[in-house]
Every structure is written in structure tokens, then in C-alpha cells.
């Protein structure tokens, strides 16, 4: 550091000493001091209004069902898509229908036989019964039939 630099430094120091800090007006200072208080009050108000929405700290495993739901959602979308039946599905349906109608036929046939049997018996009794009172041989044939 040479002589000139030293002179310059002392000059600057002197000039700085001469500078006076002008004080802010009292009202402005008061207003500026109020700002942090007001801001914190606003924050507190906001928090209390929406506090019911906060669920609190969630455990890490709580996210697992959410992750599990994603593949399930994909499967759901896939399953709910209108599925075009394949040739095998149609063939299976054809066989199912054949079995269904065969069962219907089977029940119908069995029921028909039962009705035929009951009707036949009833007719035989109601027609041959009164006849046998007057014609002996019908009574004999009725006995033979029942035995």
C-alpha cells in the first residue's frame, strides 16, 4: 500500500463519519413493525379454516393400497370392456343350449309319461269300475290288470 492509497482511505473514512442516518418517521416504523405480526395472524387463520382437511402424518404403508389399486383399476377396465365372444365361446354356448333343451325334453317326457300313467289309471277305474258292476268280465280284467 503506497502513500496515495493511505490518503484516499483516510479521506473516505472522514466522509463516512460525516454521513448521518436519517431516521424513519415514527408512524412508518410502527407500521413496518406490525407487518410480521399481521402476516403470522393471517397464516394462523388460514390454517384453522382448513385444518379439518389435514389427516395428519400418514404411515408409509398407507400408500400400499393406493399402489395396489392401480393394477386392480387396469383389470377392472379390461374386464368391463365389451368382450367379443370367440368361436370357442359360441361353440360352447351351442353345446350348453343343446344340453339345456335336452333337459327340458327329458323333463317334458317324464312328466308326459306320468300324466299318461295317472290319466290311464284314473280312466280305467272311472270307466271300468262302473261297468264291472253290470258286466262281470270287466271286473275280472280289471283285477288282472291291477295284479
Amino acid at each position: 500500500m503506497n502513500q496515495d492509497d493511505k490518503t484516499l482511505d483516510t479521506q473516505i473514512d472522514r466522509m463516512l463519519e460525516q454521513l448521518t442516518i436519517e431516521k424513519a418517521p415514527a408512524s412508518l416504523s410502527a407500521r413496518l413493525h406490525r407487518i410480521p405480526d399481521e402476516e403470522s395472524r393471517k397464516e394462523r387463520k388460514k390454517e384453522s379454516r382448513w385444518s379439518w382437511l389435514k389427516l395428519g402424518p400418514a404411515p408409509r404403508w398407507a400408500l400400499a393400497p393406493a399402489f395396489a389399486a392401480v393394477p386392480l383399476l387396469v383389470i377392472a377396465v379390461f374386464l368391463l370392456q365389451p368382450k367379443q365372444p370367440s368361436a370357442a365361446d359360441i361353440e360352447q354356448a351351442r353345446q350348453d343350449l343343446a344340453v339345456a333343451f335336452t333337459y327340458l325334453d327329458k323333463v317334458g317326457l317324464r312328466t308326459g309319461n306320468e300324466i299318461h300313467h295317472v290319466l290311464g289309471d284314473e280312466l280305467r277305474r272311472s270307466v271300468k269300475g262302473p261297468l264291472s258292476e253290470h258286466i262281470p268280465f270287466t271286473e275280472q280284467s280289471l283285477k288282472e290288470e291291477t295284479t
Binding site: 343343446a98 344340453v99 333343451f101 335336452t102 327340458l104 325334453d105 327329458k106 317334458g108 317326457l109 317324464r110
Partner: peptide
């Protein structure tokens, strides 16, 4: 329905003879 049923000839008993 009766006509359609007559056309089906399925062995539902699995023993070769169909009761239907």
C-alpha cells in the same frame, strides 16, 4: 320349442343312452 328340442340328441347321462 318342441320342434327344436326334437332336433337335440345329447347324451346327458354320459352312458350312451339318452332318456330324452
Amino acid at each position: 320349442l318342441g320342434k327344436v328340442m326334437e332336433n337335440f340328441d345329447i347324451d346327458i347321462n354320459g352312458n350312451g343312452d339318452n332318456e330324452a
